[in-house]
């Protein structure tokens, strides 16, 4: 009796927890089953190599700016670190950018 009381809500929770996974599986299956619709007669979309190259360049163009931002953030981080730990005499460490080169 008491075990029943405990188990029933637990199993409902389980099902609720499994639901997103189930939905995702269904969605992915449907997506995987989708057949190509080759609408544009002049866009080389029927050519598998062209389609792959579109996908590849889409990935390249999307990732690259994020990598650049990450690089900028990293540079900024190091630059600020350098500024914080900089010695009192910036001339010696070559820190002061406004100094002219002699």
């Amino acid at each position: 009796m008491s075990t029943d009381d405990h188990s029933r809500p637990a199993s409902r929770d389980d099902r609720r927890r499994r639901r997103p996974a189930l939905l995702a599986t269904i969605a992915l299956t449907v997506l995987g089953r989708a057949a190509p619709a080759l609408a544009c007669p002049v866009c080389f979309a029927a050519d598998e190599r062209a389609r792959a190259s579109y996908l590849d360049t889409a990935v390249l163009l999307s990732i690259l700016p994020l990598a650049l931002f990450a690089g900028l953030a990293l540079w900024l981080w190091r630059e600020l670190d350098r500024g914080r730990s900089g010695p009192a005499e910036p001339e010696v460490a070559g820190l002061s950018g406004d100094r002219t080169i002699r």
């Binding site: 050519d47 190599r49 062209a50 792959a52 190259s53 579109y54 590849d56 360049t57 390249l60 163009l61």
Partner: peptide, 12 residues
């Protein structure tokens, strides 16, 4: 952008 265009043009 230029390289992407080149890769796509070459592929077909």
């Amino acid at each position: 952008g230029l390289v992407s265009a080149f890769v796509i043009a070459r592929s077909h």
